[in-house]
Design a protein around this nucleic acid. Structure first.
Length: 384
DNA sequence: AACACGGGGCC
DNA sequence: GGCCCAGTGTT
């Protein structure tokens, strides 16, 4: 049995904190949350540091994907101090494959800020949290409420959908969502953590984007969008953005049984990850062949490689979808002739110089974009 | 206000 | 194989 039968639909204008609709919603959501099997491992966490890490990982990423990364990350960096003292390169390596690498960079930077400003203790104050790198309104509210019991809303994408539907919001602006989420948190006396998680979990399960299971919903009788028949319209979908095709060529440069890795700039796409040297992705559906590859390595890296055969066969062709463009990457195997970029023996050159000659047995020690994993496996199998 | 920023799951 | 998802920082 759910508490939904106790909720009467209200058709009034703007709901206010403390009104009967909000009170009934809050009670039903808490009842539902309390009776539910918790399906998220870190919901049992009490350590603010670990809660913070989990919330940052959960941004933009499904919980099922996060789980193994979370286990590895917290094992390798068990405390704020461990994270603050680590090399960014190693943090990125643990983060490899999770995407949105700025999160890892900000997490690392924020650990240093917590050590400096707060003696290594994650702050409970929302403003202090908000001033940390990579901590925005959502993460600040989530950590404050879940780790410290502070009565602050935490509006992620799931909460946004749930609230937009419960209150049938035509336009769900951040300010509007914050006000309504806060009213629910305030109505859940002394249980802000459970209230926020109930809302988010509902959005992550019953109140899904496409096929909400309104028949199983603990607050269906208080859902104004359901009553109005507008569930599918709440929240309004953002119009899809165009995703142009960009093409690029990269070089697998062999030298004495090792391959040249270059470190990508910390800012920007795949920032701080290791990559093959090559041309910049340029718009256009036409395959670039090897055009410009030899010149690019000479001009950008001061490395001379053997000229590619005119009809040189590509080692691999990769298609990878980013959220805002499609990458078509062609890899060519080639030989080093001359140029700086350290030596094969100097294995420590990597992080400091941005260049590393890497033998296949060490490929896995480098953080690379997900789309290079498969080609790297192939390279490792055929020894040169 | 609009855009940059990954990768995986779903249909 | 294309579509969808969605916090924070930057501009």
């Amino acid at each position: 049995m759910t508490a939904s039968s106790q909720i009467s639909p209200s058709d009034g204008p703007t709901p206010r904190a403390g009104d009967a609709h909000v009170t009934a919603l809050a009670r039903a959501l808490l009842d539902w949350f309390d009776s539910r099997e918790r399906d998220v491992a870190w919901r049992h966490e009490r350590d603010p540091y670990r809660i913070w890490v989990a919330e940052v990982m959960a941004q933009q990423t499904r919980v099922g994907t996060v789980a193994s990364y979370y286990a590895r990350f917290t094992e390798r960096f068990p405390t704020v101090f461990a994270l603050a003292e680590a090399d960014l390169d190693e943090v990125l390596h643990v983060w490899q494959g999770l995407g949105y690498y700025a999160r890892a960079r900000h997490l690392h930077a924020a650990a240093g800020q917590i050590v400096e400003r707060h003696g290594g203790e994650v702050p409970s104050d929302v403003e202090a949290l908000r001033s940390l790198s990579g901590v925005g309104p959502y993460t600040a509210g989530a950590v404050a409420s879940i780790a410290f019991g502070v009565a602050e809303p935490a509006v992620d994408g799931n909460a946004r959908r749930v609230i937009s539907r419960l209150f049938d919001l035509e336009r769900s602006t951040p300010a509007r969502l914050d006000t309504l989420a806060r009213s629910l948190v305030d109505a859940a006396v002394d249980r802000p953590a459970e209230m926020n998680q109930a809302i988010m979990d509902l959005g992550g399960s019953v109140c899904s984007p496409r096929r909400p299971a309104c028949g199983d919903c603990p607050v269906s009788s208080g859902c104004r969008a359901l009553a109005a028949g507008t569930v599918a319209l709440r929240p309004p979908r953002r119009e899809p953005r165009s995703s142009p095709i960009r093409t690029a060529a990269s070089a697998v440069v062999w030298r004495d049984g090792a391959v040249l890795f270059v470190r990508r700039p910390e800012r920007g796409l795949l920032g701080g990850l290791w990559d093959f040297p090559g041309t910049k992705p340029e718009e256009g559906p036409v395959a670039p062949g090897d055009a410009g590859l030899v010149e690019e390595l000479r001009d950008a890296h001061g490395i001379v490689i053997a000229p590619l055969e005119p009809a040189g066969e590509a080692f691999a062709r990769i298609r990878h979808a980013f959220s805002h463009f499609h990458l078509e990457l062609v890899l060519f195997e080639t030989r080093w002739i001359s140029g700086k970029a350290g030596s094969v023996d100097d294995q420590m050159a990597g992080s400091a110089t941005g260049y590393a000659w890497v033998t296949p047995d060490r490929f896995e020690k480098f953080a690379v974009p997900a789309y290079l994993r498969s080609p790297l496996r192939s390279l490792g199998q055929g020894a040169r």
